[in-house]
Amino acid sequence: MLSKKQARAFFLGGTVVTFLIFIGLTVYSLSAAQDQSNIENLSESAIRGKYLWETNNCMGCHTIMGEGGYYAPELTKVVERRGEGYIKAILMSPVPWQPNQRKMVAYKMSKEEAEDMVEFFKWIGNIDLNGFETVVSPLAKDKK
């Protein structure tokens, strides 16, 4: 029968080995050669957009790359789906946007801010998501 000592060795051994593999895989998948996000195209404007995304907690309602709240539409491919003008109009609107009953917060963004947000979405939209984009994007409908 298994002894307590063996059980402890199993715990320690398993932890150390899987942890080291985990670190190795992290280093590998984040290395420049494995980049799938077109990091070189990440503009200053898109970075400002990300800041707006965070400081307003857009993720509290929307998902992006499948992460966030389940109350409002997935935004990974929003530029392709709606176009820039529509997105800016929502962000700059002085009253809550609600085309389908459900309200969005009226952020009353400036034109520059709205443009930064769009740049952020464009960058996100070009990330290689290992196939997820074909499921969340309505464009996938056409490709089916």
Partner: peptide, 27 residues
């Protein structure tokens, strides 16, 4: 010990289930 051993053995690398579709390697 056996339980927490199983936890780490599976859970650490299991983090990968959040990495499928966020723009990192297919591995």
């Amino acid at each position: 010990y056996v339980i927490v051993g199983l936890t780490f053995l599976s859970g650490i690398l299991g983090t990968g289930h959040h990495y499928y579709y966020i723009g990192v390697n297919k591995i």
